[in-house]
Amino acid sequence: MSISAGTATPNVELGTAVKRKHRTLWGDAWVQFRRNRLAVLGLFLLILIVLGVLLGPFIYRVDPKEINILDASVPPSLEHPFGTDDLGRDMLARCIYGGRISLSVGVVAMLIAMIVGTAIGLFAGYISRLDNILMRFTDMMLTLPQIPLLLVAMSLFRDPLRMRFGLEMGAFVMVVTIIGVFGWMPTARMVRGSVLSLKQKEFVEAAVNVGVRNNSIMWRHILPNIMAIIIVAATLSVASAILTESTLSFLGLGFPPDVPTWGSLLYENRNYMVKSPWMVMFPGILISLTILAINFMGDGLRDALDPRQRQ
C-alpha cells in the first residue's frame, strides 16, 4: 500500500520541499491492521455483535422478561429464532438483553483495570522510589489464585452492595469492581516496562531540562507515547472481563438469575441442556464468538501499533 510513491516521484527533480501525504501513527496502523485478515474479520464480527445488541431491541420488539408458559421450551422457529426457555421467555430477546449487560460489564471493568493499571505502571516506571514496592505488590496480586478469591470476595460483598444499590445495579457495581480490581496487573507491568525505556529518551531529558515538572512529564509527555500499548491491553482486557463475568454468573455468583447475562443464561438453563440444547447453545456461542472476535482484533492491533513486533 504505497501512500507516498505516487505523489513523491514527480517532485524529485525539483528538489524542493517534497509534498507528500502526511502519515500519522494511526493511519499507519490502520494500513497495517487491514492487512491482517483475521483482525478485520474480528472487527467485523464485533461491530455486528455490538450493533445487534444495541439496536436489537428496537427491531426485535419482544419483552425478554415476558413469561408464557404455553410456549415453554419451544425449539428455534420463525417466531422464536433462538427458541424459548423453560418459562417460555424468548431466548433471542434474552440474549440481546444479556449481551448489553455482558458487554457493558466488559467495557466498564476494562476501564477500571486500565485506569488502575496505567497509574500504577506510570508511577512505578517513572518514580524510582516507588518502583520496587509497587512492582512487588503487582507480583503478589498476580500470584494470587483468581477464581477462588473472586468467589470469596463475591460472597462477602454481595449482600451489602445489593442493599445499597438495588438488585441489578448492586450486582453490576460489584461484578465490575471485582473484575477490575483483579485485572489491572498485566497492564501495570507492560506500562512500567515502556515507561522505563521512554524515560531514557531525549525528549524526556529535554523536558526535564527546560524545567517541566514531573507530573506534566508523566501525563503529557510519556502517557501519549504509551497509548498504543494501553489500547492493545484494553482490547484484550475487555475479552477477559467478559469471560470472567460469564464465569462468575455461571457459578451463580455474578448477576442474580433473573437478570439475564450470557453467563447467567447458561447457568439457569444448564440443566435443560439434554432436552433443549438451544437454551445453552446460543448464549455459549455468543460468548465464544465475542471473545474470539476481540482476541483476533487485539492481536491485529498489537501487530499494527507495535512496529517492533512486526515480522
Binding site: V280, I291, L292
Partner: peptide
C-alpha cells in the same frame, strides 16, 4: 485462538 476464546464451561457443556 478458539481454544482461548471458548469459555471452559461452554466447552464443558
Amino acid at each position: 485462538n478458539l481454544g482461548v476464546s471458548i469459555p471452559v464451561f461452554v466447552l464443558g457443556l
